[in-house]
Simulated scan of single mutants.
Amino acid sequence: MLAINLLAFLQFIGVAAFAVSGALVAGEREMDWFGVVVLGVIVAVGGGTIRDMMLGATPVFWIVSSWYVVVASVFALATIPLMKWGIDVRRPMLIADAIGLAVFAILGTRKALDMGISGPVAVIMGVVTGVFGGLIRDVLANRTPIILKREVYALAALVGAALFVVLREFDLPASVNLWTSMVTVLAIRLAALAMRWSIPTFRIEPSEPE
């Protein structure tokens, strides 16, 4: 079994990273402090909330453990001074978002598997956990959601979640499986940002009028 303190640490890191990314987007949109908290909390718990509702795991996790909302609110508010100092928030937001994506995509997959869900569905739940908080954030901030762009984002979560499911079939320490899968997601996402990787688009040319 994965040590409880390690799991709690990873959850804390994921919540903090996603909360910061949400707060930075709120800063880009010049929202007030309440908007900063709302976006920070939504990114941190949104994907997991949708996952739990789809799996029938109610009440959802942050209602049972309110520290998720508290930690997300604190880190979102702590981000406000960075914005007031005029710091460029784009790169820090992308890095924080990548960390949160890596942590929650894998933890979401793990939770689904622990509930007896099949591997393919667990992978989908991992992707939902990782990306849907950011999707809600972008919709509220009137931005085109990342997963609807050409960026390698949901694909990174998909690869990491699938790797986690595969590695669970081998007799590996749980922590090795967890870290390997999370680092894979993070590496793919950061490499995509650095190398400007994108997913090919699908376009149908309009037919010529007869």
Rank of each mutant, 00 (worst) to 15 (best):
R137C: 02
L178V: 04
S73D: 02
I117K: 12
I124K: 05
L107G: 08
V121C: 05
T109F: 04
D138A: 06
M182D: 02
I136N: 02
M115E: 14
V185P: 02
R196A: 03
I80Y: 13
A105C: 13
G116R: 13
M195A: 14
A161S: 15
G160D: 09
L135G: 02
V166T: 14
I80C: 12
A122F: 05
G133R: 11
D88F: 07
I80H: 07
A187L: 09
K84A: 15
V185G: 02
I106Q: 05
L163H: 08
R150Q: 14
T79K: 01
L101Y: 12
M93S: 07
V89H: 01
V127G: 10
A102Q: 10
T129S: 15
E169L: 10
P120G: 09
G160L: 13
W197M: 15
L82D: 01
I99Y: 07
A98S: 14
D97I: 03
R189G: 09
I188A: 01
F132Q: 01
R137M: 04
L101R: 11
S181Y: 01
P92Y: 08
R137T: 12
L193H: 07
P145I: 14
I147P: 04
R90D: 11
K84R: 15
I95L: 11
L155M: 10
I188V: 09
L190A: 00
I199Q: 09
L178T: 09
K149E: 12
L167C: 07
A122P: 10
A161W: 11
A161R: 12
S175I: 11
T201P: 00
S181I: 04
T129R: 03
G134F: 11
A102F: 08
V131W: 11
R110C: 00
T180Q: 08
K149M: 03
M93N: 06
A141D: 05
V131K: 13
M182Q: 00
I87G: 04
R91A: 05
D138P: 01
R168L: 02
M83W: 10
Y153V: 03
V159K: 07
T201N: 14
G134D: 11
S181H: 00
V165Q: 04
T180R: 11
L190K: 06
A154K: 06
V127P: 08
P81V: 14
F164K: 02
L148Y: 09
I146P: 00
L113R: 12
L178F: 02
V166H: 10
A191F: 07
